[in-house]
Simulated assay, not measured.
Amino acid sequence: MSEILRQQIEEITSLTDEEFEYVLSHFETKKLKKHQFLIQENDLVKNDYFVLNGCLKSYHVDSNGKEHIVQFATQNWWITDFQAHFNKTNATLFIDCIEDCELLSLSLENREKLCSEMHKIEHFFRKKSNSGYVALQQRILSMLNNNPQERYDKLLLSNPILFQKVPKKFIASYLGVSRETLSRFNSGSKK
Protein backbone atom coordinates (compact mmCIF):
# COMPACT_ATOMS: atom_id res chain seq x y z
CA MET A 1 0.00 0.00 0.00
CA SER A 2 2.95 2.36 0.47
CA GLU A 3 3.10 2.76 -3.31
CA ILE A 4 0.09 5.11 -2.94
CA LEU A 5 2.25 7.49 -0.90
CA ARG A 6 5.11 7.19 -3.38
CA GLN A 7 2.79 7.99 -6.28
CA GLN A 8 1.57 11.11 -4.49
CA ILE A 9 5.09 12.29 -3.73
CA GLU A 10 6.22 11.59 -7.28
CA GLU A 11 3.41 13.73 -8.72
CA ILE A 12 5.53 16.58 -7.32
CA THR A 13 9.11 15.29 -7.13
CA SER A 14 10.92 12.09 -8.06
CA LEU A 15 12.60 9.84 -5.51
CA THR A 16 15.03 6.98 -5.86
CA ASP A 17 14.05 3.69 -4.26
CA GLU A 18 16.53 4.36 -1.45
CA GLU A 19 15.15 7.86 -0.84
CA PHE A 20 11.59 6.57 -0.71
CA GLU A 21 12.51 3.76 1.69
CA TYR A 22 14.19 6.32 3.93
CA VAL A 23 11.10 8.56 3.84
CA LEU A 24 8.80 5.61 4.49
CA SER A 25 10.89 4.57 7.52
CA HIS A 26 9.64 7.73 9.26
CA PHE A 27 5.99 6.66 9.00
CA GLU A 28 4.04 4.16 11.08
CA THR A 29 1.06 2.15 9.86
CA LYS A 30 -2.18 2.53 11.78
CA LYS A 31 -5.37 0.52 11.29
CA LEU A 32 -8.74 1.61 12.64
CA LYS A 33 -12.24 0.19 12.52
CA LYS A 34 -15.41 1.89 11.37
CA HIS A 35 -16.64 4.40 14.03
CA GLN A 36 -13.27 4.37 15.81
CA PHE A 37 -11.80 7.76 16.76
CA LEU A 38 -8.45 8.82 15.35
CA ILE A 39 -8.53 12.11 17.28
CA GLN A 40 -10.92 13.41 19.91
CA GLU A 41 -11.38 16.96 21.14
CA ASN A 42 -8.67 17.94 23.67
CA ASP A 43 -6.29 15.18 22.52
CA LEU A 44 -2.67 16.14 21.99
CA VAL A 45 -2.17 15.82 18.22
CA LYS A 46 1.30 14.51 17.46
CA ASN A 47 0.70 13.11 13.97
CA ASP A 48 -0.51 13.87 10.48
CA TYR A 49 -2.16 10.95 8.67
CA PHE A 50 -2.04 9.82 5.06
CA VAL A 51 -5.02 7.64 4.06
CA LEU A 52 -4.10 4.36 2.35
CA ASN A 53 -7.69 3.15 2.32
CA GLY A 54 -11.00 3.88 3.98
CA CYS A 55 -12.83 7.13 4.71
CA LEU A 56 -12.69 9.51 7.68
CA LYS A 57 -14.45 12.67 8.71
CA SER A 58 -13.11 15.64 10.65
CA TYR A 59 -15.67 17.69 12.55
CA HIS A 60 -16.37 20.19 15.31
CA VAL A 61 -19.22 19.85 17.78
CA ASP A 62 -20.76 23.21 18.72
CA SER A 63 -22.18 24.20 22.13
CA ASN A 64 -25.60 22.87 21.07
CA GLY A 65 -24.16 19.44 20.27
CA LYS A 66 -24.44 19.90 16.49
CA GLU A 67 -21.72 18.36 14.30
CA HIS A 68 -20.10 20.57 11.66
CA ILE A 69 -18.03 18.53 9.22
CA VAL A 70 -14.81 20.27 8.19
CA GLN A 71 -13.23 17.62 5.98
CA PHE A 72 -13.60 14.15 4.55
CA ALA A 73 -10.50 12.10 3.77
CA THR A 74 -10.39 9.11 1.44
CA GLN A 75 -7.49 7.28 -0.16
CA ASN A 76 -4.56 9.56 -1.04
CA TRP A 77 -5.66 12.37 1.32
CA TRP A 78 -4.00 13.81 4.43
CA ILE A 79 -5.95 14.47 7.63
CA THR A 80 -5.31 15.73 11.16
CA ASP A 81 -6.36 18.62 13.37
CA PHE A 82 -3.86 20.91 11.64
CA GLN A 83 -4.17 23.75 14.14
CA ALA A 84 -3.45 21.45 17.08
CA HIS A 85 -0.77 19.52 15.18
CA PHE A 86 1.33 22.48 14.05
CA ASN A 87 0.77 24.62 17.15
CA LYS A 88 1.28 21.70 19.55
CA THR A 89 -2.02 22.42 21.28
CA ASN A 90 -4.99 20.25 22.16
CA ALA A 91 -7.43 19.21 19.44
CA THR A 92 -10.52 21.27 18.73
CA LEU A 93 -11.77 18.70 16.23
CA PHE A 94 -12.86 15.10 16.26
CA ILE A 95 -11.74 12.71 13.53
CA ASP A 96 -13.39 9.32 13.22
CA CYS A 97 -13.70 6.54 10.70
CA ILE A 98 -16.69 6.26 8.38
CA GLU A 99 -15.18 2.96 7.16
CA ASP A 100 -12.38 0.68 8.31
CA CYS A 101 -9.16 2.58 7.57
CA GLU A 102 -5.48 2.00 7.04
CA LEU A 103 -3.28 5.06 7.51
CA LEU A 104 0.34 6.09 7.47
CA SER A 105 1.15 8.25 10.49
CA LEU A 106 3.89 10.91 10.43
CA SER A 107 4.89 12.80 13.56
CA LEU A 108 5.64 16.50 13.36
CA GLU A 109 9.20 15.78 14.52
CA ASN A 110 9.74 13.25 11.72
CA ARG A 111 8.22 15.60 9.16
CA GLU A 112 10.57 18.39 10.25
CA LYS A 113 13.52 15.98 10.21
CA LEU A 114 12.71 14.79 6.68
CA CYS A 115 12.20 18.35 5.45
CA SER A 116 15.51 19.51 6.90
CA GLU A 117 17.38 16.53 5.42
CA MET A 118 15.71 16.29 2.00
CA HIS A 119 14.89 19.33 -0.10
CA LYS A 120 12.63 17.13 -2.26
CA ILE A 121 10.41 16.29 0.73
CA GLU A 122 10.34 19.89 1.94
CA HIS A 123 9.25 20.86 -1.59
CA PHE A 124 6.57 18.13 -1.56
CA PHE A 125 5.06 19.25 1.75
CA ARG A 126 5.17 22.92 0.73
CA LYS A 127 3.27 22.14 -2.47
CA LYS A 128 0.74 19.98 -0.59
CA SER A 129 0.24 22.74 2.00
CA ASN A 130 -0.29 25.30 -0.74
CA SER A 131 -2.88 23.06 -2.39
CA GLY A 132 -4.62 22.68 0.96
CA TYR A 133 -4.77 26.46 1.46
CA VAL A 134 -6.27 26.90 -1.99
CA ALA A 135 -8.87 24.17 -1.37
CA LEU A 136 -9.81 25.70 2.00
CA GLN A 137 -10.24 29.15 0.43
CA GLN A 138 -12.39 27.67 -2.33
CA ARG A 139 -14.56 25.91 0.25
CA ILE A 140 -15.03 29.08 2.31
CA LEU A 141 -15.91 31.12 -0.79
CA SER A 142 -18.34 28.42 -1.92
CA MET A 143 -20.07 28.50 1.48
CA LEU A 144 -20.32 32.31 1.23
CA ASN A 145 -21.28 32.68 -2.42
CA ASN A 146 -23.04 29.54 -3.61
CA ASN A 147 -26.49 28.29 -2.78
CA PRO A 148 -26.87 24.75 -1.40
CA GLN A 149 -27.66 23.23 -4.80
CA GLU A 150 -24.53 24.79 -6.30
CA ARG A 151 -22.38 23.55 -3.38
CA TYR A 152 -23.86 20.07 -3.79
CA ASP A 153 -23.21 20.07 -7.55
CA LYS A 154 -19.60 21.21 -7.07
CA LEU A 155 -18.94 18.52 -4.47
CA LEU A 156 -20.50 15.84 -6.68
CA LEU A 157 -18.37 16.97 -9.62
CA SER A 158 -15.10 17.32 -7.68
CA ASN A 159 -15.39 14.27 -5.44
CA PRO A 160 -18.03 11.77 -6.62
CA ILE A 161 -16.48 8.94 -4.53
CA LEU A 162 -17.82 10.61 -1.37
CA PHE A 163 -21.37 9.99 -2.54
CA GLN A 164 -20.61 6.25 -2.60
CA LYS A 165 -18.85 6.14 0.78
CA VAL A 166 -20.51 8.80 2.94
CA PRO A 167 -24.06 8.76 4.36
CA LYS A 168 -26.28 11.64 3.25
CA LYS A 169 -26.49 13.09 6.76
CA PHE A 170 -22.69 13.68 6.69
CA ILE A 171 -22.83 15.20 3.19
CA ALA A 172 -25.59 17.52 4.45
CA SER A 173 -23.49 18.60 7.44
CA TYR A 174 -20.47 19.25 5.22
CA LEU A 175 -22.57 21.39 2.86
CA GLY A 176 -24.28 23.25 5.73
CA VAL A 177 -27.79 22.09 4.85
CA SER A 178 -30.42 19.91 6.45
CA ARG A 179 -30.85 16.27 5.51
CA GLU A 180 -34.26 17.18 4.07
CA THR A 181 -32.75 19.85 1.81
CA LEU A 182 -30.13 17.41 0.60
CA SER A 183 -32.84 14.84 -0.20
CA ARG A 184 -34.39 17.28 -2.67
CA PHE A 185 -31.21 17.34 -4.73
CA ASN A 186 -30.89 14.83 -7.54
CA SER A 187 -28.32 12.30 -6.32
CA GLY A 188 -27.28 8.71 -6.46
CA SER A 189 -25.72 8.84 -2.99
CA LYS A 190 -26.50 6.33 -0.27
CA LYS A 191 -28.87 6.97 2.61
Rank of each mutant, 00 (worst) to 15 (best):
E3Y: 11
E3S: 09
I4F: 15
R6I: 06
R6E: 01
Q7H: 13
I9D: 02
E11N: 14
I12C: 11
E21C: 07
V23R: 03
S25V: 06
S25N: 07
H26R: 15
H26A: 13
H26V: 05
F27D: 10
K34R: 15
Q40M: 13
D43C: 11
D43R: 11
V45Q: 01
N47W: 05
V51L: 01
V51M: 02
V51Q: 00
L52R: 00
G54F: 06
Y59T: 03
H60D: 08
H60M: 11
S63P: 00
S63T: 09
H68W: 07
I69F: 10
A73K: 09
T74L: 03
T80K: 04
T80M: 04
D81P: 04
Q83A: 09
Q83F: 12
A84L: 02
K88W: 05
K88C: 07
T89E: 14
N90E: 12
T92R: 11
F94I: 03
F94V: 03
I95N: 07
I95Q: 07
C97P: 09
L103G: 08
L104G: 04
L104M: 13
L106D: 07
R111L: 14
E112I: 10
I121V: 12
F124C: 09
F124H: 08
K127P: 03
K128W: 08
G132H: 03
A135D: 12
Q137N: 12
L141A: 12
L141C: 05
L144M: 06
L144R: 04
N145H: 05
N145W: 04
Q149W: 04
R151G: 01
K154D: 14
L156H: 12
L157H: 15
S158N: 15
L162S: 13
F163G: 02
F163L: 09
V166N: 10
K168H: 08
K168D: 12
F170P: 01
S173F: 02
Y174A: 05
L175P: 01
G176Q: 03
V177L: 09
S178V: 07
R179Y: 02
S183H: 07
F185Q: 03
N186Y: 13
K190S: 10
K190M: 14
K191H: 07
